[in-house]
Computed example of a mutant assay.
Amino acid sequence: MSVSNAGDLSSFASTIMLPFQPATVFHKVDVEINWITQEGQGTSGPIQASFQGTIQDPLSKAWTKTLREVGYCLTGDPFSGSATGGFSSPITVDPTSKTRSYAGSAYFLPANKTGSFCSGGIGSYAFMPMTDFATESGEEELRELFKKYPAENKDMERYNLLRTIFEDPKESTGSAFMFLAQTFTQNLDPHNFVSLGISLLHPLSRGSVHIASADATQPPIIDPKYLSNELDVEFMSRHLRFMETIAESQPLASFIKPGGKRNHEMAHVKDLEAAKDYVRTTTISNNHPACSCPMMPRDKGGVVDAQLLVYGTANLRIVDASVMPLIPRGNIQSSVYAVAERAADLIKEDHHIQK
C-alpha cells in the first residue's frame, strides 16, 4: 500500500536581535487575520482556537508585512483552499484557560479550566506559489523538469493531477513558516534563534506500508521514501531559496543579527545547487502521515468506500488521515476531525440513532 509523504520540511535558523519595546496598537491587518469573519469562524464548538502570542509578537507583524513587501500579500481566506500569501494562523489553544484544546480534552477528558499556559509552535505562515516558474522561460523550465522525471504508470493519475497544480501560477505548492526556536540540531546554541522553513504541500514521492507478519501484534514495514521523486528536490529547493529573499527583506531583516550564526554549516542557500544539497541533507517529515488507505475506487487502489467501509467487509471502518486520497495543503488536524465527525454520523445512521 502506498502512502503520501506528509509534506517534507526543511528550514534554517538564524540568530535574532530581540526587541524590548512596549506593545503597539493592534490592527487585524498588521498580522493578516483580517480574513476572519463571524460567519467563517462560528460562535461555538468543542474545539477552541486562538492567536496566542501573535498580537503581542513583533515578529508576527514583521512576517506578514515582509511577505507583502516581496509581493505576497494574503489574497483571501487561507482556509478556503485557494489563497496565497502570508498570514497568522490560529492554534488550538483555549483563549480563556490558555490550555491545549483537542479531541481528547473536548470529548473524553473532564472539563478543566485550569492548567499550564501553553502556546503553539508555529503561527506565522505563507502559502507560496512557485516563483521560479512565473515567467515564460520559467514555464519552459518546468515543462522540461516534468519531461525529465516522468510518472510511473501506476501513479499516472495522481501525478497528472498534481502537475496541474504546479503549472498554475496562482496555486500554492509550498508552505513557508517562521517560529522562535532552533531546528535540526543536536547541540543547541545558547543564542536566540528564529527559524524560517518551507514545507512541500504536494510531494510527488510516495512511500509504502506493508504487513510484516500474520501476527497482528507485529508492526508493519513502513518506508516513507522521502525525496525519492527528484521533482520534490527540485521544487523544494526553489522554495527554500526564496526563504533567503524573505530573510533579507524588511522589516523582518531588521530582527536578524547582521553576520549572525546559522544553525547548520550548509544553511546559506544562495544558489540552486546549494539549496538542493541542503534539502537532501536536512529535510525531515512534517509528521502528518496520510493516504495509505485512500477513499477511492477499489480498482484504482482504494481501500475504503464513501461510507468509510473497507472494501470486502460489512462493518469495518477506517477513520483517520489514511483515507484521504491526497494530502490537504494545510495541517491535517481539522480534516481528521471532519472525517471523525462524518464517521460518527454514519454509525448513527446505521443504528438509527438521531443525530
Score class of each variant (00 low, 15 high):
130 M>Q: 09
331 N>S: 06
280 R>Y: 01
337 Y>L: 07
109 L>K: 13
343 A>Y: 03
249 S>E: 06
68 R>C: 04
3 V>I: 14
81 G>Q: 08
16 I>E: 04
227 L>Y: 07
25 V>N: 13
20 F>E: 14
349 E>V: 11
352 H>Y: 09
279 V>G: 03
52 Q>I: 15
130 M>G: 05
199 S>G: 12
299 D>T: 12
28 K>G: 00
71 G>P: 11
104 G>H: 08
299 D>K: 12
244 E>S: 10
217 T>C: 10
26 F>D: 04
347 I>M: 03
177 F>M: 08
280 R>L: 04
32 E>L: 07
275 A>I: 03
294 P>K: 06
154 K>P: 00
229 N>P: 07
17 M>N: 14
75 T>Q: 02
120 G>D: 06
296 M>E: 12
280 R>Q: 07
305 D>Q: 01
304 V>R: 02
47 I>N: 02
226 Y>H: 12
286 N>I: 01
20 F>Y: 13
115 G>W: 09
341 E>M: 05
119 S>L: 14
146 F>N: 04
285 S>W: 05
162 L>H: 07
184 F>V: 08
248 E>Q: 15
100 R>E: 03
345 D>Y: 08
244 E>L: 11
131 T>F: 01
102 Y>P: 00
65 K>C: 00
353 I>T: 02
218 Q>L: 11
343 A>C: 06
76 G>S: 07
341 E>L: 03
135 T>N: 09
229 N>G: 02
288 H>M: 05
321 A>D: 02
79 F>P: 00
99 T>Y: 03
169 P>Q: 03
241 R>A: 06
336 V>H: 03
353 I>W: 06
226 Y>T: 09
323 V>H: 08
130 M>A: 12
112 N>L: 12
165 I>T: 05
257 K>H: 08
182 Q>H: 00
142 L>K: 01
233 V>C: 06
245 T>V: 13
157 E>P: 00
166 F>Q: 01
99 T>H: 01
139 E>K: 15
20 F>T: 13
312 G>W: 10
184 F>I: 10
308 L>S: 06
83 A>R: 04
112 N>F: 10
274 A>Y: 00
71 G>T: 09
221 I>A: 02
338 A>I: 04
102 Y>M: 05
151 A>G: 08
39 E>N: 15
270 K>R: 11
290 A>M: 14
67 L>M: 14
334 S>Y: 10
281 T>W: 05
56 Q>D: 12
216 A>L: 14
11 S>F: 14
187 N>Y: 14
119 S>G: 11
169 P>S: 01
109 L>Q: 13
322 S>Q: 01
143 R>G: 08
155 D>R: 11
286 N>E: 00
326 L>F: 13
241 R>E: 01
327 I>Y: 09
249 S>F: 09
167 E>T: 07
181 A>V: 11
160 N>A: 10
291 C>D: 12
217 T>M: 12
330 G>I: 10
56 Q>G: 14
315 N>Q: 10
227 L>H: 06
354 Q>R: 12
161 L>S: 03
112 N>H: 11
114 T>F: 12
212 A>F: 11
14 S>Q: 14
114 T>W: 11
337 Y>T: 05
144 E>R: 14
195 S>Q: 08
80 S>L: 03
177 F>D: 01
183 T>S: 13
111 A>P: 01
354 Q>D: 08
81 G>D: 04
